[in-house]
């Protein structure tokens, strides 16, 4: 059945597709979960719906309420759609070093964008939003970094979908941002498929993004529990871009740069499985498609040029 009452009902239950050309052998296989097939084109639709529905159920959101959220893009865009359809006002605090498309999409859905300085990265966006929330007590900040409903969305949907579609799965590889995807899906898998290894691919940005004034300004999302993970791999901009391009040229999957980082980590895992002769079914979470990043230069020119263009950008 492919008929739905509204666009929001199409969230989740995304396709899992094989990556036969990137898989090293018939025994060690890669699979891509296409989260770009969600209403606003990213995995964040799951978290946004879950957080908004939980806030409504808790009586936090009255009709016409103002919602405030720090976001580097996808969560904001997902919240903007739901807010528009359910009659809320949305204000997003977003670092200015994010792609132009993200701002355009947010404004198209009717959100107000408050820019935060590039040099402060997402950390400063979070700090600014928390300050604004304190100054405006009637605004509701869902706070994706600490909101249990963010991770719970994945325990309830992403995890069960994966196990249903690939009962033989051995590894989950996903990007680490709010940590919601990995915490929620990881917990479900640890409880229901204890052999599955939970692997985080963490984007390593250009230096500008780490330009904190002191280490105490560092930030670890409240949702993060390192006990859920088995491994955490850092992937630089050049490797992420190289893999993003490989994914589209070899498999026809057009994904955003964060997926390139995930694929890079998945290929590390796959190479080890081949070396040790252990069969593996490795899931790669494709958090979004490449459309929103075309203006960054990620897909055109040489890899070196593209990596340089993305240096200093929050590309994941």
């Amino acid at each position: 059945m492919a008929r739905y009452d509204s666009i929001l009902d199409t969230a989740g239950d995304t396709p899992l597709v094989g990556l036969p050309n990137l898989s090293p052998s018939g025994d060690v296989r890669l699979w891509a979960k296409l989260e770009d097939r969600n209403p606003t084109g990213s995995i964040k639709d799951r978290a946004a719906l879950s957080m908004l529905s939980a806030a409504e159920a808790d009586g936090l959101l009255k009709p016409g309420a103002t919602i405030l959220e720090p976001t580097s893009g996808n969560t904001g865009i997902a919240l903007a759609l739901v807010s528009r359809l359910r009659g809320y006002r949305l204000i997003c605090v977003m670092p200015e070093n994010t792609s132009a498309e993200r701002r355009q999409l947010l404004e198209l859905y009717g959100a107000k964008v408050v820019p935060s300085p590039a040099a402060g990265g997402s950390n400063q966006a979070v700090a600014m939003a928390r300050k604004l929330a304190a100054e405006n007590p009637d605004w509701v900040m869902l706070d994706q970094y600490s909101n249990a409903a963010n991770a719970a969305a994945h325990t309830a949907t992403t995890g069960p979908e994966l196990l249903r579609d690939l009962p033989t799965m051995t590894h989950l590889v996903a990007g680490l941002g709010t940590t919601g995807t990995l915490m929620g899906t990881g917990r479900f898998l640890r409880d229901n498929a204890p052999g599955v290894k939970i692997v985080a691919a963490e984007p390593r940005y250009g230096e500008l993004v780490y330009g904190l004034r002191n280490l105490d300004e560092g930030f670890v999302p409240e949702l993060y529990d390192e006990k859920v993970l088995h491994r955490r791999i850092s992937v630089g901009t050049a490797d992420a871009l190289r893999r993003t391009r490989q994914l589209v040229t070899e498999e026809g999957v057009f994904a955003g740069p964060s997926t390139g980082a995930v694929l890079h980590a998945a290929l590390v895992v796959a190479a080890e499985a081949v070396r040790t002769g252990v069969p593996a079914d490795i899931v790669v979470i494709v958090a979004d498609a490449g459309w929103k990043y075309l203006s960054t230069g990620a897909y055109s020119g040489s890899l070196e040029e593209a990596a340089e263009a993305l240096d200093g950008q929050l590309w994941a």
């Binding site: 720090p70 976001t71 580097s72 996808n74 969560t75 990265g121 997402s122 950390n123 966006a125 979070v126 994706q144 970094y145 990007g175 680490l176 941002g177 709010t178 940590t179 919601g180 963490e202 984007p203 390593r204 940005y205 993004v209 780490y210 904190l212 280490l215 300004e217 560092g218 930030f219 670890v220 999302p221 390192e226 993970l229 088995h230 491994r231 955490r232 850092s234 994941a316």
Partner: peptide, 24 residues
């Protein structure tokens, strides 16, 4: 995830130190 400060090092390894920043 590899033994913390007891993690073994080999000749030619590359060590990177980074501050924790927010994603998402």
């Amino acid at each position: 995830f590899t033994g913390g400060l007891d993690t073994a090092l080999n000749d030619g390894d590359s060590v990177t130190i980074l501050p924790a920043v927010a994603g998402g």
